[in-house]
Design a protein around this nucleic acid. Structure first.
Lengths: 226, 226
DNA sequence: CGCCCCCGTAACAGATCGGTAACACTCCGT
DNA sequence: ACGGAGTGTTACCGATCTGTTACGGGGGCG
């Protein structure tokens, strides 16, 4: 379940937002001034923040800026009162992702929230670790210990498939379909060759593999110890 | 949290200002003569200065002038007593950004403080550095070492995208969407050509790029070493 | 114990992809 | 209308990747 932090000092507005978002299946945290909002953002790491502009103690801009300064990447939606529109550009500059102007329809706010969370999920950092290796999907990078290991496109896609399906037996057909494509024309031995080069790159001892295991007559299985 | 320096010799006034600004979430430094104020400004680099005009040792004008002489750009609000208005022009000429006349309402002073700080942030420099290059988004300027390098609009937007998403694999589609627009009609090889010209402009050795890396079958990745 | 099948692996040739230069086209401002 | 800058397209080349083949080894089963 996704968590949303609402920072809003007007109790009525806060109540309304909270009820609505909870009804739509979100977990809701609330804060009624900038300081509390900032603390909640830093400690609870919500998935998204609704941030009122005018707040006691620390104003919305400042909260936004400080959150970004802490390198927290969750999306922020600014709630601005009508007449504050001139400040919108500033809000976006400070690292907000979107804004809605009061009075707004709860439907619109929900739509924007959904959109942002979806966008966020799709660019989420994807990092898989096994042994001393680290496969970073978004950076398309494999690191072993401290050094980066170069992978060709097919090697990368094959390893990606393995780490995403750990402990599962993968037949040559499955692998061929998922990595090479359903209309692949490659002979089945091609896979073996790529497994060998992968083993050479990631296994401590390529002749006694601990990550990519051979399943005789079947295919392979990626099964890192712990 | 933002820091404000108050330079004021009247203890009552100082106390009142300090309490108010601290209550509103600012960190407050205080100095009760011009000399101490100047030192505090130079050493602590506050985000904004409230500067009384009549001060022991060095007067407000002089402090203001000396601060600007040191090329410090933080906003300065002059606090002038009624009857000193004729000197306001002088103060503004010396580099003050605003003034309030005693007696003033604390609310007005807070409003002006907020406004100045916001204006300051919105014009805050957006500068990305990598190697000996410096990309200034707001000035739309690329400098390498001492000399400015001319970038065409598309080149600039492409580089901007790269520096804003460091270490992330960017597919040709993504790049096309974000730089050329979702309805772009350009062929995918167009990107390559622009990458080449960018590399020629920013890479120490364009044939062995260290900033813009090629990801075969995917696209590119901007990944400056450290 | 020995055969056979399957897999590991090296070597190689062909395919593919990106770098790049040359060219064409479109806007501008003069 | 002309010239220049910016932009997009194409073609060629070289580097890298990929698929195939062949050979060798090892495990399982008779």
């Amino acid at each position: 379940m996704e968590t949303i932090l609402i920072v809003e000092d007007d109790p009525t507005m806060l109540r309304g937002l909270k009820d609505n978002f909870e009804f739509h299946g979100y977990r809701v945290l609330a804060a009624d001034d900038g300081e509390a909002g900032l603390n909640a953002a830093l400690n609870a790491r919500p998935d998204l923040i609704l941030l009122d502009l005018m707040l006691p103690k620390i104003n919305g801009y400042e909260v936004c800026r400080l959150i970004r300064k802490e390198k927290l990447g969750m999306p922020i939606i600014m709630l601005t009162a009508k007449g504050e529109e001139s400040d919108i550009v500033l809000g976006l500059n400070l690292g907000a992702d979107d804004y809605v102007t009061k009075p707004f329809s709860i439907k619109e706010l929900l739509a924007r929230t959904d959109a942002l969370l979806r966008r966020m999920r799709s660019t989420e950092l994807e990092v898989y670790r096994f042994g001393d290796c680290e496969l970073d999907i978004s950076a398309r990078k494999l690191t072993r210990g401290a050094e980066e290991i170069k992978l060709s496109p097919k090697e990368f896609r094959l390893l990606e498939l393995f780490v995403k399906k750990p402990g599962r037996a993968l037949s040559r057909d499955e692998i061929l379909n998922l990595v090479w494509g359903y209309d692949s024309i490659s002979g089945p031995r091609t896979i073996d060759r790529f497994v060998t080069t992968l083993r050479n790159k990631i296994e401590p001892d390529p002749h006694n593999p601990v990550y990519i295991h051979t399943l005789r007559e079947i295919g392979y299985k990626f099964d890192p110890p712990q």
